[in-house]
Design a protein around this nucleic acid. Sequence first.
DNA 1: AATCCGGGGCG
DNA 2: CGCCCAGGATT
Length: 353
Amino acid sequence: MPQSTALLDWYDRHHRDLPWRVSPADAALGVLPDPYHVWLSEIMLQQTTVGAVKSYFVAFLHTWPTIEALAAADEDDILRAWAGLGYYSRARNLHKCARSIVADHGGRFPQTIEGLKALPGIGDYTAAAIAAIAFDMPVAVVDGNIERIVSRLYRIADALPAAKKPIKQKMAILTPSERPGDFAQAMMDLGSSLCSPKKPACVLCPFTSNCEAEMAGDMERFPVKAPKKQKPTRRGVAFLIRRADGAIWLQKRPAKGLLASMAQVPTTDWSDKNTGEQFDLATALSHAPDGLKFHKKTGQVTHTFTHFHLLLDVYEATTSHKAPMADGWWSTPLDINGEALPTVFRKVVEFAA
DNA sequence: AATCCGGGGCG
DNA sequence: CGCCCAGGATT
């Protein structure tokens, strides 16, 4: 029995019911999933776990049932719905892509890899995933899970990212012409369950004794990766301005850079010159909003981004209902949960509650 | 090829 | 606490 068949058998016996998959009964009839659902789920799943995505996917589909509805949405509504999921450029590219599909492609996804890759937010992986899962095209899908599995199957010694090319070649050979989408999803399910980074459950693996790393007993060496840079710690001050009724003053962040176009409480910058002992609190406080009496909250808010740790002091002030500065808006306790507020600022609000 | 971009779960 | 995750865009 070919290795791909053994894996598909394993997949059918361990089928996971996920909101973006068709039911096993429909799949048996050859029903393919809605490309809109496949695309939306794949964008959300970029560097994000299945458990984190599920509720967001269901909510998005409820609010915007079709790609036409999503294309017609206000971008700020999409950012609010995306808040907490991370990598916010995905949300802005999601909207751009939906508008392009509707305006330039008659509301349908292109059915070629090149056509898909030309769309905002769709790269090598996502183009292949949509082609295989939504259009039944026998293309090699390679994500982080599959890099780990294939690098173990063939004991690929090259370090990532140089190993990507040989991995994709091997995956292309493995991928069957029948059920290529299920094969890709089976590989990803295998990677997120049995073929884990540490202590893989090789005894249960459908690639029994066809895995070179398992034969050699050094599975955990693969995939080989370059050592990572350590993250610096940056510091800053966040200003929580509270109205008598509990509303909090928010602002919109710039359209480029970290947490672009999202909401924030007023804050000093966290640039890399505010690293470690170079941080000057007095200079930071000189940027405090005028005309308010702030008092420092005891303790700090900590948050870790992709490439730095952040330590925030929190200063709080209360004021009348008059706007404390030119840009921004009051967000009442009822509104705050629906704001496009990234997790670091939700921590600040919660910290000062 | 390196860097920037979030957040959470797990050992 | 470090590592990893259904990566893409930019430089």
